[in-house]
Nucleic acid binder design. Structure first.
Lengths: 389, 389
DNA sequence: TAACTTTCGTATAGAACTATACAAAAGTCA
DNA sequence: TGACTTTTGTATAGTTCTATACGAAAGTTA
């Protein structure tokens, strides 16, 4: 059977509570269209399973105050990983996706995905010890990887910067080590976008994020879910040929990432004799007012802005969030990007468009990975099946 | 109440039958997870309402043959309109979206949307008379308009080529004249894409269509539905600034449509002394082997191909269909477009990508409008409510 | 033809869900 | 304080849906 036997599944209701669509009995009855008795019963089931708790009361509208329910943040813990091309972060969060502890490290993904995963697993051990949490308390794991993930199978798809890892099922690594946890994997930029959109821009259904670090990545969110495309490569602004003859780390020639990105700026600065390694070095130079860096950044912003204009014209998002380390430069890069976008997008689109810095900074990925894990743990069918008598 | 009282609504089942996901009792039971008794009851309701009919039998798999159900094409008629910038088509179809009669006319939308609608309404009168159909037999109307439609309200949004019609609710015009019909309105390119995807490429969940006529338009289909974006402008490849100083009919400068489109080719050919009016004139010149036209077309294909590369990189569709009048030139434009796309898109995306001509030709819009109308008529909640005892 | 398979209809019992009524709890307002 | 409002719990009856069993219809296969 593909559909659950019980049509008024508690998992469906948990979705309403979790998203804030309906938080009180009366609201749930109105939104779900179920009877008051059934809603009460399902609430009892979710509370018995410790998945929700009563968290307060609505202000009175002239009568008894309605009780507000929310996801029980203490119903288990989530592991999160934001594996980037040159930098990775991991964290442990409660079920409400509040990240409790984090750790980060500079590892080049080119040294091998297995080494990054091993590092992550070791760090999880330390973090769990420090929190006094056991492996069996981990109910979900969310992982972001720097390459496309097939939406159907969860396997890596020809990852441009992880050659040799095509077809790998990252979830297996964690399933073996955390047997009680649900594992969800998605592209790193998708996870950042998921974090920003759910946390900071929930009112926007159509959302885009552009990540400017050493690389250039982007992601599209539609109705609260990342767009994956046919093979999980949707949203990849960085590896479209843009011009020039520079060879990109993905193997192609003239990608946006090869001509206008942190990589490109680092390459040019090195030619000029500067010692630059990470995107944070570029940020530091720009903060110092280094003219070469500022000039290269301005050029990058124009080119990136033009690509964002393509994205806006094609996808018509309500917001484009600029994230990644270079976004720490604030208006220094936002203003020229905005100018380049305005230059190329019809005015009727611009009026409705917000271009803004990320509100979560470097933590967007770890946070989004927690949301991804939470989504997996709170899967309606899973919950409905688990909570019935 | 927002949700229906009956959870096993017949409208949900109609969706399975209509899409072909499940066509026999056994398949419906397996797919829906409902009991055999309930499925039988809902089938009876849908047959009583004349919305479905038994249409044949599956081959035996060793026992009694299963009865196949399908949408009853005779349960009412649909009006369809594909209103373009310079050319419009209307048609009448049965409920299965088989277009029975069609009519077309060259009207410039700049002369006023009201004139096009009046024309459409008059032609519907003649077409219905010829078929012996009354106004009360019309159960749905699907309309494509050459500009963005707000997905929330159904109103036109700052239509670049229909100045003065901002905020207009096209559905009202038809509601007044066909009170029994459900009316659905969407952008013309979205409707073309809907027609092609549902009819010709149902196996592709992520789909794009690029329309090359005088203008350049495009649309994205995700999971069988057109992507609308924040204000209904998603998919508009044609009005992103691309280069040059030509002023586009949308008011901006240097749009793709201004530099590489039927408009641009017509403009250049006129400068060279040719007499060209419609996109069909361009097709005729190209068929005659006119070198100026071929040169301009080749240039257009390169630029359009580069824009399609952006689209592919951002959206990762499984298919990009090339439609519109210029697509009648076949490989003459498909090959250079393919070459330009390959030039700019990473190889791992190309391997999975199909670039193909539309299979419905100029009728895609009228067909898609019929599908849109059918979708509206077969809305699950509507049907569930209408068919219960 | 006989044995087997799959589809389909119906009958029955029981589970799940709704509607309704009533009462209690917990507020506001004059 | 008393009248009113909204929220919540519970009991009862009735409806909807499921599970199961049985049999008939309509095929295939040996």
């Amino acid at each position: 059977m593909t559909a659950p036997t019980f049509v008024t599944g508690s998992g469906i209701m948990l979705g309403y509570i979790r998203s804030g669509t309906a938080r009180t009995r009366t609201e749930l009855v109105a939104q779900l269209g179920w009877s008051r008795v059934t809603v009460g019963k399902r609430l009892d089931e979710l509370m018995d399973a410790r998945l929700i708790v009563a968290s307060g009361q609505r202000d009175s509208t002239g009568g008894r105050r309605a009780e507000i329910f929310e996801l029980n943040k203490d119903a288990g813990f989530l592991l999160t990983a934001d594996i980037g091309g040159s930098h990775s972060r991991v964290g442990v969060s409660d079920l409400a996706a509040n990240v409790l502890v984090e750790a980060e490290v500079d590892i080049d993904i080119a040294t091998g995905l297995d080494r990054v995963l091993t590092w992550a697993h070791e760090v999880y051990g330390h973090l769990l010890d420090s929190l006094g949490i056991g492996v069996s308390d981990i109910v979900g794991i969310g992982v972001g990887v720097p390459g496309p993930v097939d939406p159907a199978t969860g396997r890596l798809v020809n990852p441009p910067i992880m050659p040799g890892w095509d077809g790998v099922l990252v979830a297996d690594y964690f399933h073996e080590r955390y047997p009680d946890a649900v594992v969800a994997v998605d592209r790193d930029v998708n996870i950042m976008a998921l974090g920003e959109q759910r946390q900071a821009w929930p009112e926007h259904q159509t959302f885009a994020l552009v990540k400017l670090g050493l690389g250039v990545g982007s992601a599209l969110i539609l109705d609260g879910q990342a767009a994956h495309g046919a093979i999980g490569a949707a949203g990849d602004l960085g590896h479209i040929r843009h011009g020039g003859e520079e060879i990109c780390r993905c193997g192609s020639r003239g990608c946006l990432e090869a001509t206008a990105s942190g990589w490109a700026i680092r390459r040019e600065l090195k030619k000029l004799g500067y010692s630059v390694n990470t995107s944070r070095d570029i940020v530091a130079l720009a903060h110092d007012g280094n003219q070469d860096t500022l000039r290269l950044l301005a050029d990058m912003c124009t080119q990136v802005g033009h690509s964002i204009a393509d994205l806006v014209g094609l996808f018509n998002p309500g917001v484009v969030v600029i994230g990644g380390n270079l976004a720490n430069l604030g208006d220094l890069i936002l203003n020229p990007i905005r100018a380049a976008v305005v230059e190329r997008v019809p005015s009727y689109l611009i009026d409705q468009l917000v271009i803004a810095p990320g509100k979560l900074g470097g933590r967007a990925g770890v946070f989004g990975a927690a949301i991804l894990a939470q989504d997996a743990v709170c899967d309606p069918d899973r919950v409905s099946l688990a909570t019935r008598g």
